Simulated scan of single mutants.
Amino acid sequence: MKSQDLSEYEAELIHLLDALRSAKDNAEKNQANAQFKAKLEETIRLDGAFDYPFSGLKTMGSIKSPDNEFRLFNWNVEQDDMTQKYYCYVLTFDDRSKKYKIIELKDNSFMLPQKPTEILEADNWYGALYYKIIPMKKGSKTVYTVLGWDGNNASSTMKVLDVLNFSGGTVRLGSPVFKFPKETLKRVFFEFSKKTTMYMSYEEQYSRIIFDHLAPETPALTGMYSMYVPDLSHDAFILDDGKWYLVEDVIGVNAAMSETITVSYKDDKTGEIKERKIKNKWEEPSKSHVATTPEDQMKEQAGEQKEQPAAKNNHKPDRHQPQSYNPVNGTKKKKKR
């Protein structure tokens, strides 16, 4: 099918998705979502859908695996009580039939523990929005680590690390590859306060997943994960021979920058916009300028010696604070479908 034809389908999907996002209550959302879901499934069955960008669907995730083996179409519907329902289609090429096939991940979180620990089938999914896919070798097979987000409930949000693999013509989730000092997990959940955000990203050049270290706001709140926040330090999972090994208290670094950058400026004489290359180097302001208070100025005027600035506090967060990695399972408060 030509991309022009797919653009007509996309236009209808955009209209249906806008209707879903503007729905006022659960009844309207369920009806609008059913229409959008049916049309999306019809659309991605068409020839060319795997490579079509679907860039107009702004509130639906659509990502490919880096090796082009599959593509995810993934979205959420927030309920009246601020819990979430999740939907996901996996589009992949079937070598046997020589056609693309669709595998649906079905959100069954109402019947699952809040943080399930076992390997899950496609029709027994906990629900999440995936935003990164990392291929990795496990023996002779390729499996995929996925990074996801879950809005959870009115008081907390979750990030999740999981492993997606294809087996028996379907998708399974979970694999014992997340190595902690005293245990190995099939997936990892991080739960934290709704009032904050948690950074979690894959750094390909270092083969690591780096993320904020979470801790309770005060020691008295230990175990109350809706009160956990980033403590300004970072941890990471380092990939080694198909396993992710936890390393605590790592340093995050920015990508290498070029030595020069090009800046644009207006010539005051001619009014022309010109460009000039300058050194791309940040200089510590304290080396060339030190802020002063009115008291400092009075002392200088009186000939007194200016006081030296106080030393910076380089205290690192206590690494022994409890972590929120895969805490004890609880019942997820979602309304029964």
Rank of each mutant, 00 (worst) to 15 (best):
S7H: 09
S7C: 14
E8K: 14
Y9F: 14
Y9K: 13
A11C: 01
D18H: 10
A19P: 00
A19N: 05
D25K: 04
D25H: 09
N26H: 01
K29M: 08
Q31C: 09
K37W: 13
A38D: 13
E41M: 06
T43Y: 05
I44M: 15
L46G: 00
D47L: 13
D47M: 02
G48C: 07
G48R: 01
G48F: 02
Y52T: 10
Y52G: 10
Y52K: 01
Y52S: 06
P53H: 02
P53E: 04
M60R: 03
I63G: 04
K64R: 14
S65N: 09
P66K: 03
E69V: 03
E78C: 08
T83F: 11
C88T: 07
T92Q: 03
K99L: 12
K99Q: 15
K99S: 15
K101G: 08
I102S: 10
E104R: 12
N108H: 15
F110Y: 09
T117F: 15
E121N: 09
W125H: 07
A128I: 12
K132R: 06
I133A: 12
I134R: 04
P135W: 06
K137I: 02
S140M: 04
K141S: 12
K141F: 12
T142H: 08
L147A: 02
W149L: 04
G151V: 06
A154P: 01
L164H: 11
L164D: 09
N165P: 11
F166E: 14
G169W: 09
G174L: 07
K179A: 10
F180N: 05
V188N: 04
F192W: 04
K194Q: 06
K194H: 02
K195G: 08
T196F: 06
T196G: 01
Y199H: 08
M200V: 07
E204C: 02
E204R: 06
S207P: 07
L214H: 00
P219L: 00
G223Q: 00
S226K: 01
Y228A: 00
D231F: 00
L232P: 00
S233D: 13
A236F: 00
A236Q: 08
L239S: 11
D241Y: 10
K243Q: 13
K243W: 05
L246F: 13
V247N: 11
D249P: 12
V250M: 03
V253P: 00
A255M: 12
A256K: 01
M257E: 10
S264C: 11
Y265P: 01
Y265I: 05
D267L: 09
K269V: 04
T270P: 01
T270H: 03
G271I: 13
G271C: 03
E272M: 02
E272T: 10
I273M: 13
N280L: 06
E284N: 15
S286K: 12
K287R: 15
S288M: 13
S288P: 10
H289S: 14
A291C: 11
A302G: 13
A302I: 01
K306Y: 07
K306H: 14
P309A: 09
P309K: 07
N314E: 11
H315G: 05
Q321T: 11
Q323F: 02
Y325V: 00
N329C: 00
K332A: 14
K333A: 11
